[in-house]
Computed example of a mutant assay.
Amino acid sequence: MEKEMVTDGLKKNRIQVSNSKKSLFFYVNLSKRFLQEYNEVELSGLGMAISTVVSIAEILKNNGFAIEKKIKTLTIDMRDDPEARPLPKAKIEITLGKSAHFDELMAAEEDQKGSEEGDEQN
């Protein structure tokens, strides 16, 4: 049985993706760090952020960093205030695991960053 990393009721390896707050590649890089630390990352998004979640997952999979473990779609009720009528909102959760080549790809990426920084100093 897999153990979930939970602290204060929140999964440590969950990234809640927003459409407006951060760039796509911020989430891609954050996901790589979560994969490094936890071997698994759960991407979660509501409404318009769903396409961003899917894009992040596809970038990680297509570049060989991650494998898809689980996709869950659901509808949750959202309220702006407790008195308001609930509004149904679509939600997606995609769980990704480290690929077999993850560590090699991360090492190659670090080498590339190091050589680019060396080029800038010359």
Rank of each mutant, 00 (worst) to 15 (best):
D8A: 15
E109K: 15
S31K: 10
K11D: 02
L24D: 12
N63G: 03
P82A: 04
I15Q: 02
R79G: 07
S23C: 02
G114C: 13
V17Q: 11
R33A: 14
S99R: 04
E110F: 12
M106T: 07
M5D: 02
I15P: 01
E117P: 05
D77G: 13
G114R: 12
Y38I: 00
K22W: 07
G9I: 15
G45R: 05
T73V: 14
I59A: 02
G45Y: 08
N62A: 07
G97T: 01
I56T: 09
R85M: 09
E116K: 15
E110K: 12
P82C: 03
L35K: 00
S55D: 13
S51N: 14
A57Q: 10
I50N: 06
T75N: 01
L60Q: 00
G47Y: 00
R33P: 03
P88S: 01
V54E: 03
D8R: 11
D103C: 11
T7C: 08
M106Y: 11
E40C: 01
E104P: 12
V41W: 01
D77Q: 14
E120Y: 09
V53C: 01
R85T: 07
V53E: 04
E42R: 11
V6S: 03
P82V: 03
V6W: 01
F25K: 06
A49T: 00
F34W: 00
T52I: 05
N29L: 09
Q121W: 13
K72P: 09
I71V: 13
N39V: 03
D103Q: 13
I50Q: 06
I67Q: 04
D103E: 14
K89P: 08
L74G: 11
L43I: 04
I92C: 02
K61S: 05
V41G: 06
L87V: 12
K113N: 09
M106S: 12
A84R: 00
A107V: 08
L30H: 13
K3R: 05
A49S: 04
A100I: 08
K21C: 05
P88G: 02
V17F: 12
K91L: 03
T75P: 01
K12L: 10
K98Y: 10
Q16I: 10
I50C: 04
S51D: 15
D80Y: 11
T73C: 15
K98C: 12
K61T: 05
K98S: 12
H101T: 13
L60E: 01
M78I: 06
K72W: 08
E42Y: 07
N63Y: 11
E117I: 12
I76Y: 08
E93L: 07
E42I: 07
